[in-house]
Design a binder for these strands. Structure first.
Length: 357
DNA sequence: TCTGGGGTCCTAGGACCC
DNA sequence: TCTGGGGTCCTAGGACCC
C-alpha cells in the first residue's frame, strides 16, 4: 500500500507579503490586480484569512473585493491592503520549500508553485508518516515563517482532498479504511476535475454529495466521455496516478487585458509585438527539446467577453522573434475586419502562445 | 459583481492518406 | 450507384486547475 502526502501552502502569496512587510502584520491582505479605486480590471489572486472574513476570496473580481473592503472599513474594521504580486520572489520561496520536502524524500511532485505531492510509502506506519509530515511543516515554519496544510492518504486524490480539510496549518490523515466514509459527505465539487459547470449539471440531477453520486451505475457515467470511468473510480477513493518527478512544458504564452477596451489596430499590433517578444524570450530560456513547438495560437477577447482563438501549425519552429511576431499578426488580421469581427467590436484582451505538437 | 494570467487536458469535425 | 474503415494531423472550443 502506498502512503502519499499532499502539501498546500496557506494563502501563499498573501502570507509571503505579510511576512516581508512588517506593516502588513495581522491586517487583511489582498494580492492581485490593481484595484484602481474600485474601477480596476482583473481578479484577486490570494486573500489572507483576515481578508476572507470580509468575504474576499481568490478569483473574485478585484472591483468586488474593493467594494467589500470599503464596506468593512465603513463598519470600523481594519482597512484592507491591496498589493500586486512579486512572482519571482514567490518562485524562490517555492523552490526553498520544495527543497525542504526533498530533505525527507526524493519522490516529490511540484504540482504548482504552492503545492506538492510526495511519497511516504517507506514509512513503516501511518503514525510514522504523520510524524514526517509534521517535521516538514515545522521546518517550513522555522525556516520560512510560513504555514502549510498537509493531507495524507493512500493516493494523490485522498491526500489532496485531505490537505484542504483543516486549513490553515492543518495535518489530516485518512487511512485506507477511512477513505470511503471520509469522501461520502463531501460535495462532488471536492473531486479534482469537477468544476462549476459539472457541479451545476449534477445538481440539476439531484446530486450534491459524493454519496449521492455513488448511487449511479457505471454505465451512467458514459455521458462524461473518457473521463467517466475515471470519475467512477475517484468518488470511491481510487486513484493510481503516479508521483510525477518532472513535467515537460507543452506551451509558453502570454496574454494581456487592456485597461480599457481598444479599437485602434495600431495599438493592438504594438501590444502583440511586446507580448510575442516576451514569449519568444521565455521560449528561448526553455531547457526542453524545442523542435516540436510549431503551432502558434493567438487569442482575442472582445469587449463582450466573447473569446476566439486562431492557430496555425508551421513546417518548422519559428527562427526568430520577427518570424514569430509575423505569424501572430497573420492570425490576428481577420479580427480587424468583417471576416472575424463584422460588428467591429472592441478588443478587451489579446494573447499569443507557442505550443508543442 | 463583471469576470487575470499562467497553464493542461479533452472532444469533435474536417482534411487527407492508405 | 451511392458511397468503407482506420489512422493521423490540424483547428477550435471548452472545462478545469492554481
Amino acid at each position: 500500500m502506498r502512503i502519499i502526502a499532499h502539501l498546500d501552502m496557506d494563502a501563499f502569496f498573501a502570507a509571503v507579503e505579510e511576512r516581508d512587510n512588517p506593516r502588513f502584520k495581522g491586517k487583511p491582505i489582498v494580492v492581485g490586480a490593481d484595484p484602481v479605486g474600485g474601477k480596476g480590471r482583473g481578479v484577486v489572486s490570494t486573500a489572507n484569512y483576515v481578508a476572507r472574513k470580509y468575504g474576499i476570496h481568490s478569483a473574485m473580481p478585484i472591483s468586488t473585493a474593493w467594494r467589500l473592503a470599503e464596506a468593512a472599513r465603513k463598519r470600523g474594521e481594519t482597512a484592507a491592503i491591496f498589493t500586486g504580486g512579486h512572482f519571482e520572489k514567490y518562485g524562490k520561496v517555492s523552490a526553498e520549500i520544495m527543497d525542504i520536502i526533498r530533505g525527507y524524500t526524493p519522490l516529490v511532485e511540484e504540482s504548482s508553485i504552492d503545492e506538492a505531492y510526495f511519497d511516504l510509502s517507506s514509512a513503516e506506519s501511518w503514525e510514522q508518516a504523520k510524524e514526517i509530515a509534521q517535521k516538514i511543516k515545522t521546518e517550513i515554519k522555522d525556516k520560512e515563517r510560513l504555514t502549510a496544510s498537509v493531507g495524507i492518504g493512500t493516493n494523490k486524490l485522498i491526500a489532496k482532498i485531505a490537505s484542504d480539510m483543516q486549513k490553515p496549518d492543518g495535518l489530516t490523515l485518512v487511512t485506507e479504511e477511512q477513505a470511503e466514509s471520509f469522501l461520502e459527505p463531501l460535495s462532488v465539487r471536492k473531486i479534482p476535475g469537477i468544476g462549476p459547470k459539472t457541479e451545476l449539471l449534477l445538481a440539476k440531477q439531484g446530486v450534491k454529495t459524493i454519496k449521492d453520486l455513488k448511487k449511479w451505475k457505471r454505465e451512467e457515467f458514459e455521458d462524461f466521455g473518457g473521463w467517466g470511468n475515471e470519475l467512477y473510480n475517484r468518488i470511491r477513493g481510487k486513484d493510481e496516478s503516479p508521483i510525477v518527478l518532472e513535467y515537460e512544458t507543452k506551451s509558453v504564452g502570454e496574454q494581456e487585458t487592456f485597461p480599457e477596451d481598444v479599437a485602434d489596430a495600431a495599438k493592438i499590433t504594438e501590444t502583440m509585438r511586446v507580448l510575442s517578444d516576451s514569449v519568444w524570450r521565455s521560449f528561448g530560456k526553455l531547457k526542453d527539446d524545442k523542435k516540436d513547438f510549431r503551432t502558434v495560437v493567438i487569442t482575442v477577447r472582445f469587449a463582450d467577453f466573447e473569446t476566439k482563438t486562431k492557430s496555425h501549425t508551421l513546417k518548422n519552429i519559428p527562427k526568430s522573434a520577427d518570424e514569430f511576431y509575423f505569424e501572430a499578426i497573420k492570425l490576428l488580421l481577420p479580427f480587424f475586419d468583417k471576416r472575424e469581427n463584422p460588428k467591429h467590436k472592441k478588443f478587451r484582451l489579446i494573447g499569443v502562445r507557442i505550443v508543442k505538437h
